[in-house]
Design a protein around this nucleic acid. Sequence first.
DNA 1: CACCAGGCAAGTA
DNA 2: TACTTGCATGGT
Length: 215
Amino acid sequence: MALSSERILAIYEKLHDCFGPQEWWPGETPFEVMVGAVLTQNTNWSNVTRAIDALKRGNVLSYQAMVSMDRDTLAELIRPAGYYNIKAGRLQNLLFMLRDRYAGDVDVFLSQSQETMRESLLAVKGIGPETADSIVLYAAGLPSFVVDTYTHRIFSRHGLVPEETTYDEIQETFTHALPRDAALYNEYHALIVNLGKEFCRKTRPRCSECPLEGC
DNA sequence: CACCAGGCAAGTA
DNA sequence: TACTTGCATGGT
């Protein structure tokens, strides 16, 4: 256990030396980060920016504009992000949760405790653990470690977690290995995604060049 | 052409 | 409970 904690810290150092600061999450406001977190589900970030840009061009990237928007209108705006019908519904579910439980006040929502915020998000149909943690970490700035496909793939291929590990177990592994620090969680997740995109794809095309070695 | 992307929920047995 | 499938655009 102590051994795996050491490796998790060592891997962070290695990735940070290798790639440098990542400066995540791209987004001008916490609300934009929340929208982006839903839009990026199983989707390349470049497609998400097209959708975000469309919302900005329409001057509707705000709670007030989006909460009263027709679902199909919203779907058409976010079309480039893919799964646009599903995601329009999920964004509405999120917006309605903000309306019903926080009187539509995003700042109030973001000012709660980390635990309550995560629970509120997980209660929204269409928001699972990764999207919830992304919002808690990158929109609210609270230390909730984000586990994504790359995290599971990279760390199971390196034998640091079993292949069949659940989301919560991987998160727990990182939480116990690292100091409870939002800036660190922010950077670590970004570095993992950067590494994964470059060297740890499904079919392992460039695995021999992976800076971690031993994949 | 096939494969992939910063997931999640619903359906099936 | 344990798999499988649907959702969809745009880049490599």
